[in-house]
Design a protein around this nucleic acid. Structure first.
Lengths: 97, 97
DNA sequence: TCTAAATATCGGAATTTCCCGATATACCAA
DNA sequence: TTGGTATATCGGGAAATTCCGATATTTAGA
């Protein structure tokens, strides 16, 4: 758990938005674009309004920080939150930092 | 509470160290360099091993993010943690982000 | 006053981040 | 195979951050 990597990943408006969207995908994405593994990149990109490459990099960054997980299904990659990482971060701030 | 400002402030090794030192000043600073208002800039600078201007700027940044508070006493400025901000951030990550 | 000490602010070089377009890779379907 | 779709990676210009030295400000004390 690299604290600085995590905080850097959280230091961007779009990346924070993505995390919010992935917290309640049923609110933000149509059923056909999400499943138990999360939401595919293209739909996240569409909502973000940035280029595909940028959004893909952002998702990779969030993944490296451990905040989200990826599952490849055919040509799609589904991303979902790693809630344990958020719980751990919350506890870290509550008691360690 | 500007989330991004907070996460940016936390995205730096030295600033995280300063927050750790201020969490338990009695461990890291001699009694004559601390009081109920916190620890003075010079002592924080000494521990950080960076220039006075850099450390002063870092403290200003942490203060703008709401993570620490400043009290001027004579020629000294004492900085201490704002624990409520950390509690609020912990809750934010636990339930909102 | 005048000087010295503590801190804050300014200007800038080096590095990193932001976000793009172009290109590469992976997979599916015909 | 071949072409099309989804995603990842690369190269780079613009903007932000890092950290410095120099300078300004604030306050105490002679």
């Amino acid at each position: 758990m690299d604290q600085i990597e995590i905080f850097k990943a959280l230091s961007n408006k779009t990346r924070l938005q993505i995390l919010t969207w992935l917290k309640n995908p049923e609110i933000y994405f149509a059923p056909e674009h999400r499943n138990a593994d999360g939401v595919c990149v293209g739909m996240i990109q569409e909502k973000a309004g940035l280029t595909q490459s940028t959004v893909s990099e952002y998702l990779t960054m969030l993944k490296k920080a451990g905040l989200i997980e990826a599952t490849r299904v055919g040509q799609w990659t589904y991303y979902k939150r790693n809630e344990e990482a958020f719980a751990a971060l919350s506890k870290l701030i509550e008691s360690e930092i």
